[in-house]
Design a protein around this nucleic acid. Structure first.
Lengths: 193, 193
DNA sequence: TCCATTCTTGATCAGTCATTCTAGAACAAT
DNA sequence: ATTGTTCTAGAATGACTGATCAAGAATGGA
C-alpha cells in the first residue's frame, strides 16, 4: 500500500555511480546527485537514508554490474591466462564511459586514510584476487605447486598491477604504452608455464 | 623592509603535506590546515594565495623531500635492480608516517576526473619512470636492446606495479603478501638477465 | 624617529554542504 | 469514498566551506 515509486532504481543507481566515479565520494554533492539521478533531494534521503546510503547502493551496483560483468565477459571460468589477459586489456578500452575511473581503486584511495577498511572495497578487491587466483590455477604450472601458494602470490602481484594500471589510466597515461606493459606481463607469465 | 616571517616554511609545508596525504585535497579544510601548520587562515592566504597554492607548495615539498629522498636513499645512481628492489620494499616500511598514503597516487586518482592533467603528478610519475628506466639499463641485459625500448616498457610495467602497491597499502592490504609479491617480481626480473 | 612595507590576527563574508521538515500527491485496502 | 501509508517536492535548517578584509604588530631604511 502507499504511493508507488516513480523512479527506476537501476537508472538512479547508474547515474549516481557515474557521479561517484567521476568526482569521488566527497567531491559528489547532493545537487550533483540530484541532477544525475533525476531525483530531488528529499526523495534521495527518503529512499536511501543519506549520502552514504546512496553511495553504498551505487557501489553495490558497480560491483554487480561493471565489475562482475567485466569478469564474466572477458575472463569467465575456464578462460585461464588468456582470459586474464583480455580482462586487463579491457581496462584500456573502457567501452563507453570515458575516463570515469574504477570505483574500487578510487575508493580504496579516498577511504584509505581512515582506520576502518571499507567493506565494499574489500569485497571487490577480494573478488578480483580470487578470480586471478582461479584463472591462474587453471594454467597447468601452478597446479604442480601443492598448496597453490605461488598462485596466491602471483594473484596478489597481478592485483597490484591491475590497480596501478587504473591509477595510470586515470592519470591520463599513454594507453599504447600501458597496452605494451600488459602484453609483456602476460607473455612472460605464459613462458613460466 | 617589512615585518619578517615568523613561521618556518619547512615545518608549515610538512604539516600541510601531512594533512593532504591523509585527507586528500578536497578533504582537507582550511581549518585543518591551520591546525596542522600553526598558521592562521589569513596568513595562509597571504603567504600562499589560496588553498591550491598551499597544496602546490606542499606537493613540491613532497616531491623534493619524500620522493627524491626515498630514491636517493634506496635506489641511488648505479644501484641497479638491487636498488629498485629496495625502493619497492621501502614502501612497506613507511619509516615513521603510518598509513598516510602516497601523495602522487592519491592525487592522480583525485584529480584524474578532470580533463587537465595535474603537472605535479605528471612530474612525479615521470621521475619515477625515468628512475626505473635508468636503473634497469644499468642491468646488463637491457643494454643489448639497441634503443632501450624494452627498458621503457619494463619501466612502465614497474610504475603500474608501484602505484598499485600504494593503492593496496592504503587499502590496508596484508604487508607480508605484498612483500612476497615484490620479491617475486624482482626475482623473476633478475632471471631475465 | 618616522615611514613604507610586510606580516599576523581575528572577525567576517557569501556560498555551499548534507540533512530535515512540511505539505501535498498517489496509491492499496477497506 | 475514506483511510492509512508511501512517495515526491521544495523550502528551510545550521554547520561548515574557502576566501576577504581591516586593524595592528614588527621590521629595515631614511
Amino acid at each position: 500500500m502507499g504511493r508507488t515509486r516513480e523512479f527506476d532504481e537501476e537508472a538512479v543507481l547508474k547515474g549516481a555511480m557515474h557521479i561517484f566515479r567521476k568526482h569521488g565520494y566527497q567531491g559528489a554533492s547532493i545537487r550533483d546527485l540530484e541532477e544525475a539521478t533525476g531525483l530531488k533531494g528529499g526523495s534521495i534521503y527518503h529512499a536511501f537514508g543519506d549520502k552514504a546510503g546512496l553511495f553504498d547502493a551505487a557501489f553495490g551496483h558497480y560491483n554487480r554490474t561493471v565489475l562482475e560483468g567485466r569478469i564474466e565477459r572477458f575472463a569467465p571460468l575456464g578462460s585461464g591466462l588468456k582470459g586474464l589477459r583480455e580482462l586487463f586489456l579491457s581496462l584500456l578500452h573502457e567501452p563507453d564511459d570515458g575516463s570515469l575511473g574504477c570505483l574500487i581503486t578510487n575508493m580504496a584511495v579516498e577511504f584509505g586514510g581512515g582506520a576502518d577498511r571499507h567493506p565494499r572495497v574489500e569485497a571487490a578487491l577480494g573478488l578480483l584476487r580470487t578470480t586471478f587466483r582461479s584463472r591462474l590455477t587453471e594454467a597447468s604450472t601452478f597446479v604442480r605447486d601443492a598448496d597453490g601458494a605461488k598462485a596466491d602470490r602471483t594473484a596478489t602481484r597481478l592485483l597490484a598491477f591491475y590497480q596501478g594500471l587504473l591509477v595510470l589510466i586515470r592519470g591520463g597515461d599513454d594507453k599504447a604504452g600501458l597496452r605494451q606493459a600488459i602484453e609483456d606481463e602476460f607473455n612472460q607469465l605464459e613462458t613460466m608455464l
